[in-house]
Computed example of a mutant assay.
Amino acid sequence: MITATTDPGESSPSQSAHLSAYFLRDSGNQLRLVASKNNFADSNGSWGNAGEIGTAHFGPDDGMMVTGGTSQQGYSSESTDFYAFRNGGIVSLGMVPTGWSNDDAAATENEAITVTGKVETDLPQPDRVRVTYMRSAHGEDNRTGVAIWHSQNGQFVLEAGSIPEEIAENFDLDANVVAKNGTPIGSADAAPSAIAGKTLWSINDAGMEQPESAIIEAIKQDPNYPSICRLTGKKMLPSLSEGAATWFVTTSNRCDAGAGLAPVWIVSVGPTGKASIVLSEFLRAVKIQDSRHGDFRDIVVNGDAKLPDSGDIYSFDGTTYRKTKS
């Protein structure tokens, strides 16, 4: 179990959460605490958010990855910290950059660039991760590159493959990382894989862009829309609905946001292009569930930035999402 705490006082963009780990064992239908690691690391998120925590595997060791992002003056970045549960402790393997965007700072649409990365662990050789980078820019064809990162002395270095120029230029990477950019990698590591669908969508995600005009117009009709704010979002893959595309949309540069929460809309776009709002809430993140009601998957809506793993279950009633369980 991972917990996150913040220091007393008002939250700020630079505030991190202190992460602690508790190891529990099933003992006669009861969970027994066998070890704890208090404040083993700080999160890489902003506004005191813990970030998105997922499982990872490094050879014989289990582990976890913590992904967080920051946004400032129209630029956003995302990185992932990796940890291995090893020798009775938690070993930090280092950080890998996984996303970047200048969408809200670009003077024109043609200058907007977004980089997103899909992370994979459990590679044949230990303490390595593979990141598939997707670079999209208006007016250009999308480009995909694969990079193999190797942890050495608590820091990831680029072992082989290629990273987008925006990642090389906008992260504080060592010279040897830049020097190895473009190094060929073996066919097994370079083999393309399907881009995995996200199960957690957050207002802190990097790589968002201005939605289609039909989505913007639908949101502008919502009484909850703050008219002074620009909108940014991303198409949800996989979609919440088998019969329509869905978009996760929030406000740019944390406009009308506070306490780690922001206005969020989920918009459904049917085959005819008609956009309809199916969720309008002030929240931090939504987590996608396997269960369905009608044509839409259920979601867990998190409205408490200090309790990132909490939330209420929302189900689709044929028109909109409504809370069905706390």
Rank of each mutant, 00 (worst) to 15 (best):
T3G: 11
P8D: 05
G9R: 03
G9I: 02
S16V: 07
S20H: 08
D26T: 13
S27N: 15
G28S: 07
Q30R: 15
S36G: 11
N38L: 12
N44S: 13
G45L: 06
S46T: 09
S46V: 07
W47K: 07
W47R: 08
T55I: 14
F58M: 04
F58K: 03
P60N: 05
G63A: 04
G69M: 03
S71G: 14
S71Y: 08
S76W: 02
E78M: 13
S79P: 07
D81V: 10
Y83L: 00
R86D: 08
G89T: 02
L93S: 03
G94K: 05
V96N: 08
P97R: 05
T98W: 04
G99E: 01
W100M: 04
W100I: 07
N102I: 05
D104S: 15
A106M: 12
A107D: 13
E111I: 09
T114R: 11
E120V: 12
L123W: 01
Q125D: 11
D127Y: 06
V129A: 06
R130F: 03
Y133T: 08
R135A: 03
R135W: 04
H138Y: 14
H138L: 10
G139I: 03
E140P: 12
N142A: 14
G145C: 13
V146C: 10
I148S: 04
I148W: 03
W149T: 02
H150V: 06
S151H: 07
S151M: 05
Q155H: 12
I163F: 10
I163P: 10
P164A: 07
E165S: 15
E166T: 11
E166M: 09
E169R: 12
L173R: 02
N176A: 12
G186P: 08
A191S: 14
S193L: 12
I195M: 15
A196F: 07
G197Y: 03
T199D: 14
G207H: 06
I216G: 11
K220M: 06
Q221M: 09
Q221A: 09
I228T: 15
I228M: 15
C229E: 06
C229R: 05
R230Y: 11
R230W: 11
T232W: 02
G233A: 07
K234W: 02
S241R: 10
V249P: 08
V249N: 08
N253R: 13
C255M: 01
D256E: 13
G258R: 10
I266N: 01
V269N: 03
E281T: 10
E281A: 10
F282D: 00
L283I: 09
V286K: 02
I288P: 09
D295M: 07
R297L: 01
V301L: 04
V301D: 00
G303P: 08
G303A: 07
D304L: 04
G311W: 00
F316M: 04
F316W: 05
T319D: 10
T320E: 08
Y321S: 00
Y321E: 02
K325V: 10
